[in-house]
Amino acid sequence: MHSLILHAGTLYPEPKRYDSRLNGEFQKFSVGPLPDLLARDARLCLIYLGFHPGPVDWVAGRQTLSALAEFQSLNNLPVTTSIDAGTVAQLRNTLPPI
């Protein structure tokens, strides 16, 4: 029988050992900001297109923004300092059809 964890007024079963990494991510995002899905999407597109935005995580850091600026320069697009829905659309439009 598993013990229970109380979080935000809800009881959850304690994760098994193989879930310890997932639990760590859950704990990180349950008290902090939500993950930036646009940053993750942009990173995946940049990697697919051959750029190097760093590891795929939830943050648009220095490496991601540098890779994005390189992509935008090579494609004669205005260089931006943040990732928004329009930026992700530019990246997706550059991907080859599946």
Rank of each mutant, 00 (worst) to 15 (best):
L68G: 00
C45P: 00
R17G: 07
L91N: 00
T94W: 02
P35E: 09
F71C: 02
N93G: 11
Q72W: 04
L4P: 02
P15C: 12
T94S: 02
Y12D: 09
P53Q: 05
E25C: 09
I5Y: 11
A39G: 01
S20Y: 10
R40Y: 06
G50P: 04
I83T: 03
G54Y: 04
Y12I: 14
G61I: 07
K28I: 06
G86N: 10
S30I: 09
D19Y: 12
C45S: 08
A42E: 03
Q90K: 00
A39V: 02
V79R: 10
G54D: 05
L74G: 08
P55F: 07
V59W: 08
D84I: 04
T94A: 02
T10P: 05
L49M: 11
K28L: 15
F71T: 02
G32C: 09
P33Q: 11
V88C: 02
I5Q: 14
P96E: 08
N23C: 08
R40D: 03
F71Q: 02
L4K: 11
S3Q: 14
G32D: 12
I98F: 09
L46A: 03
Q90P: 02
H7D: 14
G54E: 03
Y48W: 06
R40S: 13
Q90D: 10
C45T: 01
D36F: 03
N76Q: 14
P33E: 14
P13E: 12
F51R: 03
V88W: 00
Q27S: 12
T81E: 10
L4M: 14
G32R: 14
R17K: 12
A42L: 01
P78Y: 07
Q90S: 05
L95Y: 01
E14H: 12
P35N: 06
A60I: 05
D36S: 13
I47K: 14
E14D: 10
L38Q: 14
R62C: 06
L74K: 12
G24F: 06
L77Y: 02
L6Y: 10
I5G: 06
P78R: 08
A42K: 00
P35I: 13
V88I: 08
S73C: 06
T64M: 01
S66Y: 04
I83N: 00
T87P: 00
A8D: 14
H2D: 12
P55A: 12
Q63Y: 06
E70G: 03
P15G: 12
A42D: 00
P35W: 05
N76L: 04
Q27I: 13
H7Q: 13
S82D: 09
H52L: 13
N93A: 05
G24Y: 07
N93R: 03
L38E: 11
T87F: 00
G24H: 08
Q90W: 03
K16T: 12
V31S: 15
E70D: 15
M1Y: 08
S66D: 10
